[in-house]
Amino acid sequence: MRAPIGPFDHAVPAPDCLAELVPPVAEALAGWSADVPADQVLYVDTDPAIADTAAFVAHYGQDLLGRSANCVVVAARRGGATTLAACLVPSAGRVDVNGTVRRHLGARKVSFAPMDTAVELTGMEYGGITPLGLPGGWPLLIDPVVADMPYVLVGSGRRRGKLIAPGRLFTQLPGAELVPGLAP
């Protein structure tokens, strides 16, 4: 099947290729119970050497920049407590960590989580973190622009491969919250 966005001639429903995904993502898809069917999540095989946004769009097409989103892990601190959260924003934007995220999470300070922490706690590869299969209890802050996209290209949990899904699907994930101004 051809992917609904991008130059990908071979897209596979993600539930049909769970072995290609990291365990947390495969488990999230296997246990799927949202309104948008899991088979609307598509997997496309991509080169892991160009997983980062700039290299990816340079290779696969600049039009994907406006059709893709990045999922980043942040650490919010208040007092002695640290809360981890994920933010899903358009790839062309940047997460407003010190403004919108800090206020939304009620934190004194917010920063991007250290790579080792993000990788260890998500069970995903750095550069491929996706909102599907995040640890239970984590807030998933979503920029409304992403939720409004007909289809969104995101990481697959690994540097190899990407997922393509309707934007509204992400609002149905555990802990999902629409946060206007997340990526101004």
Rank of each mutant, 00 (worst) to 15 (best):
G155W: 03
G157W: 03
V22N: 10
P180G: 03
A51N: 13
P184H: 11
L141T: 11
P13D: 04
V119W: 03
E27F: 04
M124Y: 10
L153E: 05
V146C: 12
L21R: 00
V36D: 14
R77W: 10
E120Y: 05
M115E: 13
D116H: 05
L64K: 08
I164T: 01
A51Y: 14
E177L: 07
R108I: 03
A92N: 02
G66N: 14
D39T: 08
A176H: 13
T130P: 09
V179E: 11
S33W: 05
V110L: 06
L178C: 07
D52A: 03
T53E: 14
Q40F: 07
L42I: 01
Y151Q: 11
L141R: 08
G133M: 11
L134C: 12
V89G: 13
A58I: 14
V97I: 13
A19N: 15
D47W: 08
L173C: 15
V145C: 12
P114F: 00
V36I: 12
R158H: 05
V152Q: 01
A165M: 08
V73L: 06
I129A: 01
G99M: 12
Y43E: 06
A69L: 09
V41Y: 02
L173Q: 05
L105E: 07
D35I: 04
A55K: 09
D96M: 09
D96Y: 00
P114Y: 01
V57Q: 12
L163G: 07
A38S: 09
G93I: 02
A30S: 13
A75V: 04
V146I: 05
G106F: 10
V22R: 10
A55W: 11
I5D: 02
L153R: 01
V89S: 14
D45G: 01
A38K: 01
P37A: 02
D96E: 07
F8M: 08
A113Y: 01
Y43I: 02
G133V: 03
G128E: 13
G181A: 15
G137L: 13
N70T: 04
P180E: 07
H104F: 10
L105K: 08
Y43P: 03
T100V: 14
D52T: 06
P15R: 08
V119L: 03
C17D: 03
L173D: 12
V95L: 05
A76Y: 07
V97L: 14
L21D: 00
D39L: 15
P131K: 10
G106W: 12
Y126K: 04
V12I: 15
A92T: 10
R77N: 06
G161C: 04
A85M: 10
L134D: 07
L153Y: 00
P180Y: 08
Q62A: 07
V97A: 09
H104I: 15
P114W: 01
L163P: 02
D45H: 14
R159S: 07
D9K: 13
R168K: 13
P114E: 01
P37C: 02
V73E: 14
E20D: 15
A75Y: 04
